[in-house]
Design a protein around this nucleic acid. Structure first.
Lengths: 131, 131
DNA sequence: GTAAGCCTTCCAGTTACTGGAAGCTCAAGA
DNA sequence: TCTTGAGCTTCCAGTAACTGGAAGGCTTAC
């Protein structure tokens, strides 16, 4: 299977697949004409990475997950630890965004948003507490 | 005021302040010895950017906000529009993370996490629906 | 005078791609 | 058979927003 087909089956752009190969994440065989040649198992791994990336795992984490994926002697606790850490990280990000949201929505709500130059948002960003 | 002092007053590292100058966001006067020289107003602008970045505005958005900040003839609706768009974006990110969280926590919860190789997390990433 | 601590510039690296150019290969149609 | 277009190759450069480090100048205190 050429890279275009592998891209369609995995949901990753060809550029990204080549990039993953360049950084040593996933290598493909080569056909006689020099084209990359993907097996069904290769495509499985590509989809695997595509899903893991979509769930917020970094490329380096995908590298770890891939080695666990292909390792039938793995312990599920290894994978669970990785995933749990990621979950904690996601929770932290959500809380952080909620904090931003709160501050920003206060500022937006207190701004009348008309043609007058007075603007509580600007004042808030400038650190003026009388906003 | 030298860059180190400006850094302490604004909460931005010197490296970042130099970077902002390099990209034309904030320029400083120079003392006779070639050192950057920051006025109180410069420091206000640095803090302004520091706060806006902390609220999730991109550097380019900070550039816009800065020009509105210094523009006494601005309309508060301009600023409100920028901030509202950012708020929407933050909401979208929160929802996206919640979705990730849900999927990942399902996977984590269904994984026994012991020394056996069976792992619903790996299976889930691999697209096996019997996980 | 010399050492520490600041400042300067410049170059390179980070993350995870993405875009584009130059050129080769392959399949189909006139 | 020739050509055209799609798809493939590599390589170089750029993105966002810094960050680290090297090499060297300035300042201040002892």
């Amino acid at each position: 299977m050429n890279i275009g087909a592998a891209a369609r089956h995995s949901g990753l752009p060809p550029k990204t697949i080549r990039y993953y190969e360049e950084i040593g994440l996933l290598k493909a065989d080569r056909a006689q004409n020099g084209y990359r040649d993907y097996s069904g198992e290769d495509v499985h791994r590509l989809r695997f990475v595509q899903r893991a990336r979509g769930l917020g795992f970094s490329v380096e984490e995908c590298r770890q997950l891939l080695s666990l994926y292909g390792n039938s002697g793995r312990e599920s606790s290894d994978v669970k630890a990785l995933a749990s850490a990621k979950l904690t990280e996601i929770d932290r990000k959500i809380e952080e965004l909620k904090g931003l949201r709160k501050t920003l929505s206060h500022l937006v709500a207190s701004c009348h948003g008309d043609d007058r130059p007075e603007c509580p948002i600007i004042d808030g960003l400038a650190g003026r507490t009388d906003a």
